[in-house]
Design a protein around this nucleic acid. Structure first.
Length: 478
RNA sequence: CGGGGUGUAGCGCAGACGGCUAGCGCGCCGCGUUUGGGACGCGGAGGUCGGCGGUUCAAGUCCGCCCACCCCGACCA
């Protein structure tokens, strides 16, 4: 067994994922079961995700704030579905400073309740609306089975919470944020997600309607990569979030919440990663370009490093790293930066100095085919264009892979075969909780989403055969 | 929480039927030679063998209990 190589995806996908996350230094296991340490490289990736989303939230009128980690247990119990959904996975603090607390505190699994409580204080009039707040925070959910980034007891995310005067406004907000997530996934992460609505059984505990962006991982399992919920007046009624309208009538607000977490890093890994390791989309990569100088003698070193220095200043608008370590060979560095998913690598050696060239190796195309020699002239232009090409190619590859694995079976037998072979099914569906549960029992597949884009017309429900007006995606999921 | 597996150096592992100073590869430190796809030589450092208890002249090794982690299921962003 070659310890230098990752376990191939085809051999053991979970093992491939676990090794990759740790060896690329994205995250490590914490001394507490189910918890992770996000290492600097992984956190840097998260910071890039944060920066882009944060900018888009602000561009749509949202502001950031910070709410407490601890929530009175009684708050969680005020909204019936919410407490039913979350009580099994709450971490509860009962002792503080050595004495038993009068009321236990839950470590927030999400912040609808405590934010709802505050909104009730802050909102008096229709003039106070809408309230558009986001927070970047950590939350805790006591999960049974955990995996780095995908499901840990504690994870990092943003949660937006808004309050509106009308149902229409709340729905528009919910969809606006879903669109931001989908656009982010496509255009920044090169993850071709399918935006859609969750079924009754899959929706958020306490929501009227939940929307999701669903992504297909390399093993064809679905991953919910972001969610946006229309909470209707459920939380407004539970927490008395009321306002006086223009006619001096007391009204309940309409609220929403939406979140995207560090799980998205898992989505990036499993959408783009290959047997060499991580493949990061240029727009999000902590390091976009790594420069590997190659030389033997001091004289060569001087010449090579002169070019490297020039590149450093010419490429200053990119996130670059010069790997000038002398204790490892260039070959070692190539493998290491490929493992860590750097989109583009420049190799500069004596031959390049002589020829006024540089070797350009793109991560999205492994091996020799991804390597070319280009002129040193206008290196910034060349690099910029190549990074865009890589970004586009990654999205195209992921989209192709996704579409190749989505099938449209005509009957339930074919449906079961496709699910058994790890495919996704796109089928006519007449909403029915019991039938959905039966499909899950039969096949382990769940209704991932009812996509926003619909073909129109009607068809026969894949399970019941009844006339259905919508199509839905079914797949096994993380 | 059910089923399976694993705990020996930072990582990966080996240590019949108990036996004396616990070993190997990678990594790490030093010196030298190297450097265009995971370099090599020489010399080093590094361990309460997951924990507790038991059996024994003697326990990584046998027995019991506990703990942790991983994988596969049921629940979830």
């Amino acid at each position: 067994m070659d310890e230098k190589k990752l376990t191939p995806k085809a051999e053991n996908y979970s093992e491939w994922y676990n090794q990759l996350v740790q060896r690329a230094e994205l995250a490590d296991y914490a001394p507490v079961r189910g918890c992770m340490v996000v290492r600097p490289y992984g956190w840097s990736l998260w910071e890039n995700i944060q920066a882009i989303l944060d900018q888009r939230f602000k561009a749509t009128g949202h502001v950031n704030a910070a709410f407490p980690l601890f929530i009175p247990l009684s708050f969680m119990e005020k909204e019936k579905e919410h407490v039913e959904g979350f009580s099994p996975e709450l971490a509860v603090v009962t002792i503080g400073g050595g004495t038993e607390l009068e009321e236990p505190l839950v470590v927030r699994p999400t912040s609808e309740t405590i934010i709802g409580h505050m909104y009730a204080k802050w909102i008096q009039s229709y003039r106070d609306l809408p309230v558009l707040i986001n927070q970047w925070a950590n939350v805790v959910r006591w999960e049974m089975r955990t995996r780095l980034f995908l499901r840990t007891l504690e994870f990092y995310w943003q949660e937006g919470h808004t309050a509106h005067a009308t149902a229409e406004e709340a729905e528009a907000e919910t969809l606006q944020m879903l669109n931001i997530y989908a656009d982010f996934a496509y255009n920044e992460a090169a993850v071709p997600v399918i935006p859609g609505r969750k079924s009754e059984t899959e929706k958020f505990a306490g929501a009227v309607r939940s929307y999701t962006i669903e992504a297909m991982m390399g093993d064809k399992k679905a991953l919910q990569a972001g969610t946006s919920h229309n909470l209707g007046q459920n939380f407004a009624k539970a927490f008395d979030i009321q306002y006086l309208d223009e006619n001096n009538t007391l009204q309940y607000c309409w609220t929403t919440s939406w979140g995207l977490s560090t799980r998205f890093i898992g989505a990036i890994i499993m959408t783009h990663g290959d047997d060499q390791g991580l493949v990061l989309p240029p727009r999000l990569a902590p390091i976009q370009v790594v420069i590997v100088p190659i030389f033997r003698k001091d004289e060569e070193k001087t010449q090579v490093m002169a070019v490297v220095e020039r590149f450093k200043s010419e490429l200053s608008t990119f996130r670059i790293k010069v790997d000038d370590r002398t204790e490892v060979t260039p070959g070692f560095k190539f493998n290491e930066w490929e493992l860590r998913g750097v989109p583009l690598r420049l190799e500069i050696g004596p031959k390049d100095v002589a020829n006024n060239t540089v070797a350009l190796a793109r991560r999205d195309i492994p091996g020799r085919e991804g390597k070319s020699f280009v002129s040193q002239e206008d290196i910034a232009g060349t690099v910029g264009a190549m990074l865009e090409t890589i970004q586009a190619n990654m999205l195209a590859n992921a989209t192709q892979c996704r579409d190749e694995n989505i099938h449209q079976p005509e009957d339930y037998e074919a449906f079961k075969e496709i699910i058994a072979a790890d495919g996704w099914c796109y089928v006519w569906w007449k909403p029915n909780d019991e039938n959905e549960a039966r499909i899950k029992e039969d096949t382990k597949a769940t209704l991932r989403c009812i996509p926003r884009e619909q073909p129109g017309g009607t068809g026969k429900c894949i399970f019941s055969g009844e006339e259905a007006t919508e199509k839905a995606y079914f797949a096994r999921a993380y």
